[in-house]
Amino acid sequence: MAAVAPVRRPKRRSIPVGRILLLGFFLVFVLWPLYWMFNTSIKPSDDYLTVPPVWFPTAPTLVHYEAALFAYRGLDGLINSLIISLSATVLSALFGTLMAYSLARYNTGGQHLSFWVLSQRFLPPIGIVLPVFLIYRGVGLYDTHIGLIIAYTVFTLPVSVWMMFAYFRGMPKSMEEAALVDGCTRWEAFWRVAVPLAAPGIVAAAVFAFIACWTEFFFALILTSRSAFTLPTVFRAFIGFQGAQYGEAAALAIVSLVPSIALGVLAQRHLVRGLTLGAVRG
């Protein structure tokens, strides 16, 4: 990770065999399931049950991708996931930044308000989702895009708020104070001075909110069914399968993991802050 600068310590002479072995083993452990999934996704169905297994498919095929996207409605799930995750990300980053600024600069509500937001992060989703399901059915938000967008906005808010809270606290106040002295309103000091300076932090918070929405399963499973279902819930179709749909499951998995991995690796400089809600500056 770029942000965590490697520490240079006095070199010892011996070759660290143990370290290399451990790291090598762990790399294989991480890559092996991904490789096998990719391998399965391009393997013709005839190769599924051969002994020994087909390690490298000789006749790669895209039929599974086609089936996963169209026959299993993976494409619909993909589009829903994009609409819902992007909308929730924008709302979460916007409201999160607003609140974080107020907490960081005006100490709004003291410690209580900020810790109340943090406590939301640790609520078990099962406790929330049952009543939300009942409420959504009552007000007609069940199985709608808007319903899931609102749910995801709320569920990513603690992380957005705390990441931005830490970011604003680490930013010097002097620019905004100068703007206020010059006669700017508080809103102008925030919107025209602080927000542009905090843009990298906002982008990072948005990336983590997006990944959280994109990979979320539990809320989507319970709050959607036939029309607003997201990509992860499409995998329900492959549960308990008897051999016929291995390729489709793998193909859909490959399609859905590409965006979040790409974003995550691009934002890895901010990973430590993202994982610890800003508590640790990576």
Partner: peptide, 26 residues
């Protein structure tokens, strides 16, 4: 080190559903 770092963090960005699926396949 940089490349290895990028590879090692990949599982964090994958839906647990897909992780379950990947290990099911294995």
């Amino acid at each position: 080190r940089g490349v290895i770092m990028s590879i090692l963090i990949v599982p964090l960005f994958i839906s647990p559903v897909i992780v379950g699926q990947a290990w099911t396949l294995l």
